[in-house]
């Protein structure tokens, strides 16, 4: 049954990446990008690479998300393209 959980995580990862690409609200895009990184971390943990998963969770879902949000605060929250 473990493959069902992994398929669910993969689908959630792809959906969060597509939402981050298509979203007009850049804050929502930053949050869904953090969700993407977190799902990648959970998939890496389920594959047995705990160290890589830990780094991905700390950096991708933590630090990069914070920097994206600071950049949004300094510029604009709406995507113009």
């Amino acid at each position: 049954m473990s493959w069902l959980i992994e398929v669910f995580l993969f689908v959630l990862m792809v959906v969060s990446a597509l939402v981050a690409l298509r979203s007009r609200d850049l804050l929502a895009a930053a949050v869904t990008l953090s969700l993407f990184s977190f799902m990648a971390a959970v998939i890496m943990a389920s594959l047995g690479a705990i160290d890589v998963a830990f780094t991905e969770a700390v950096v991708g879902a933590g630090a990069v998300g914070v920097f994206n949000i600071v950049a949004i605060t300094l510029t604009t929250r709406e995507s113009r393209d």
């Binding site: 830990f54 780094t55 700390v58 950096v59 933590g62 630090a63 914070v66």
Partner: peptide, 8 residues
């Protein structure tokens, strides 16, 4: 990882 957590 510890450094990133302290920075966070």
């Amino acid at each position: 990882q510890g450094g990133v957590l302290l920075a966070a």
